[in-house]
Amino acid sequence: MKKVIGLLAAVSLLTAPLAQASTVTVSGSTSVAHVMEVLAENYQKIASKNVEVQSTGSSAGIRAAKDGTSMIGMSSRNVKQSELNSDTKEIVIARDGIAAAVNNANPVQNLTQEQISQIYRGEINNWSEVGGEAKPIVVVTRENGSGTRGAFEEIMKLQRTVNGHKVTAISPRAQVGNGNGMIKTIVANNPYAIGYISLGSVDDSLRAVDVNGIAATDTNIAAGDYQIARPFIVLMDKNAHINAQDFISYILSEDGQSIVAEEGYIRVQ
């Protein structure tokens, strides 16, 4: 009996790494995770393979793909060359707009790109300065390491150079929310708040303002008219496990890209 138990234990130890390897691990951007979870759920139904998705932020996802702690990393901002190694492969799976979102009770319908930047720099502090009520603006931003924040700062020129290093120009008085969900909750419950979130996360609880007179829509982003937009990127090792490669192939397939579109993002295939 002891020999049988010992044999079973040995077989278990040998097969455990194989079982673990068969699970596709994905981590990173909370914005990308929104659509990735739906893609993973559908893929598991047709492929009978496990996919685990974790929202850890773009910077953490890039590091995880680079050091191998996740098979696939997710980023909702452009990846710097210094963050990659020679074996890391970048793949754009979708495109997304970043919405400047306000409370449904806010009468402001349109802001210029420069007005939004001035609001976030703390140069415009009252809604009356941009056609709204005479009420202080509650500015809400994402946490450091957020891909959405990185893309927003880059597009909106909300970075400055200090001693040779780029630092944020967003007002230190801005409230910080971790993830699109928290930003939505803050803005949906405060009629004088403004926050930026993934366009695919906009729902009836809040409203995306027009920017430079252009509505935040998939059509306008695809045409290049709505300027606050960024790619959704996945990263993996060139020699990644076959299951990870198959999952990426599914995402780029007609079925996968249809899900991308259904979830409110712009397909790339």
Rank of each mutant, 00 (worst) to 15 (best):
residue 94 A to N: 11
residue 121 R to H: 07
residue 128 S to Q: 09
residue 60 A to F: 00
residue 45 K to H: 11
residue 65 A to I: 10
residue 69 T to K: 04
residue 126 N to M: 05
residue 72 I to N: 00
residue 111 L to C: 08
residue 76 S to P: 01
residue 82 S to F: 03
residue 91 I to P: 08
residue 96 D to N: 11
residue 84 L to A: 05
residue 125 N to D: 11
residue 106 N to C: 10
residue 45 K to G: 03
residue 118 Q to S: 12
residue 47 A to Y: 03
residue 59 S to R: 10
residue 90 E to A: 05
residue 85 N to A: 03
residue 127 W to H: 06
residue 119 I to H: 06
residue 61 G to E: 01
residue 85 N to S: 10
residue 86 S to L: 05
residue 121 R to A: 06
residue 112 T to M: 06
residue 98 I to T: 04
residue 127 W to L: 07
residue 86 S to T: 15
residue 95 R to A: 09
residue 87 D to N: 15
residue 122 G to C: 05
residue 107 P to M: 08
residue 80 K to S: 10
residue 45 K to E: 15
residue 96 D to M: 13
residue 93 I to R: 01
residue 99 A to N: 11
residue 109 Q to K: 13
residue 115 Q to M: 10
residue 78 N to Y: 00
residue 109 Q to R: 05
residue 111 L to N: 10
residue 84 L to F: 00
residue 81 Q to W: 02
residue 103 N to E: 04
residue 109 Q to I: 07
residue 56 T to S: 14
residue 79 V to Q: 07
residue 86 S to R: 12
residue 83 E to P: 07
residue 66 K to F: 02
residue 45 K to Q: 14
residue 103 N to D: 07
residue 123 E to V: 02
residue 81 Q to D: 13
residue 127 W to P: 00
residue 62 I to A: 04
residue 125 N to Y: 01
residue 90 E to W: 00
residue 112 T to Q: 09
residue 125 N to A: 05
residue 57 G to T: 08
residue 81 Q to G: 12
residue 90 E to T: 12
residue 54 Q to E: 15
residue 59 S to C: 03
residue 93 I to L: 11
residue 96 D to H: 08
residue 61 G to Y: 00
residue 128 S to G: 07
residue 85 N to Y: 06
residue 89 K to L: 09
residue 88 T to D: 13
residue 49 K to N: 14
residue 70 S to K: 04
